[in-house]
């Protein structure tokens, strides 16, 4: 046995983590998924037509500290926090109607020719981060159902409404904040899905870099000595709230997030390339910029200020994603400081 085989065998010893899958329950899910798959195949042609209908032209990206090309999305009247701390059940009760309205917009819902997502009972919902945070009216809270309907899970953000305003519409764009809306960025980035990645209370953290595209915000937040990179996609594009954070560890090259966002299947197929993080000095010289090369695309440069950066780059009409990327670290004179290992190809 090789040393590597030995290490892998040891690492794969999962006796400390018991299985939680019930094969019979899995069978029920499999049967349900098969029915859903058949339904999707049946509406495929209709989805293609819908894609033409909802396609929208790209807007310019919005860079923190630069000219704003998009208005902030948060409804001002809804952002004023109330005084009383809300219990989990109170958060769920206030958010229920708002969440239902988002579910009705879901990708595989009525817009794609399928029946609307089922309205799950309020009793199935919870606010998973309520034990971490003291929520008040006007705060952003995550709410999810413990159940799944045939289209998948429900993990949503909610702007907690005041009493009597539970049915007021709150646009989904509220949750992709403007680059200068520090408080909203910090709130949304604090509401990542516990089952997907880490959750960190970043309220009060300083937003040190941010850029926003039509469907995505990338931001770098500083909390004490720690930095967190946060990406926030447009929720309607994913049917979910797949925003994530990553700790930006200072000893790494720290491009902690990079990725491609393609738009939902019924939307425009634009590729997004984004990252946020920190860059230490290289060979004693501070990094002033990152030059990014994407195969078959014009090269572009991202400024790095004080070692901090965040960017969102949109490559229009790229249904196959982005292939072949390389980045080079530059000093203030534009000279090469280093070429770290490349981000691997990113495909949508």
């Amino acid at each position: 046995m090789t040393e590597l085989k030995h290490l892998l065998d040891r690492a794969a010893d999962g006796t400390d983590t018991p299985l939680r899958t019930d094969p019979v329950a899995l069978l029920h899910r499999a049967r349900s998924a098969r029915r859903r798959h058949r339904a999707r195949v049946a509406v495929g042609a209709l989805s293609a037509v819908t894609a033409l209908a909802v396609a929208t032209p790209l807007a310019a990206t919005q860079l923190r500290g630069g000219p704003s090309t998009e208005p902030g999305a948060l409804t001002p009247a809804a952002s004023a926090s109330g005084d009383a701390t809300l219990s989990e059940s109170e958060v769920v009760a206030r958010c229920y109607e708002q969440v239902q309205s988002y579910n009705a917009l879901a990708r595989w819902g009525a817009g794609a020719g399928l029946p609307p997502r089922s309205k799950l009972p309020i009793e199935t919902y919870r606010a998973p981060n309520s034990r971490r945070y003291d929520y008040r009216v006007g705060d952003v809270a995550s709410v999810e159902s413990a159940e799944m309907d045939s289209f998948g899970s429900f993990y949503r953000l909610c702007l907690i409404p005041a009493t009597g305003h539970e049915s007021d519409p709150v646009p989904l764009t509220t949750f992709v904040p403007a680059v200068d809306d520090d408080a909203m960025i910090a709130q949304v980035c604090s509401e990542t899905e516990p089952q997907v990645g880490q959750v960190r209370n970043l309220r009060g953290a300083e937003v040190v870099a941010a850029q926003r595209g039509p469907l995505l915000l990338a931001a770098l937040l500083r909390q004490g000595d720690d930095y967190y990179a946060c990406s926030v996609p447009h929720p309607d594009n994913t049917d979910d709230m797949d925003h994530t954070i990553n700790l930006a560890t200072p000893q790494s090259h720290v491009v902690v997030q990079a990725g491609v966002e393609n738009g939902k299947p019924t939307g425009p197929v634009d590729a997004y390339y984004y990252a946020a993080g920190r860059l230490d000095e290289v060979a004693g010289a501070p990094v002033a910029a990152i030059r990014i090369e994407i195969r078959d695309q014009p090269t572009f440069t991202v400024p790095v200020q004080g070692g901090e950066f965040a960017f969102v780059h949109v490559v229009p009409d790229s249904p196959g994603g982005i292939h072949g990327t390389r980045y080079t670290l530059l000093d203030a004179d534009g000279d090469t400081l280093g070429e770290p290992s490349t981000w691997s190809d990113a495909q949508g």
Partner: peptide, 16 residues
């Protein structure tokens, strides 16, 4: 590589 899910430390020791 899935849209909205892609995130990785990419170099050095940023795997925490």
């Amino acid at each position: 590589r899935r849209p909205w899910r892609r995130e990785r430390p990419t170099a050095g020791h940023g795997a925490d």
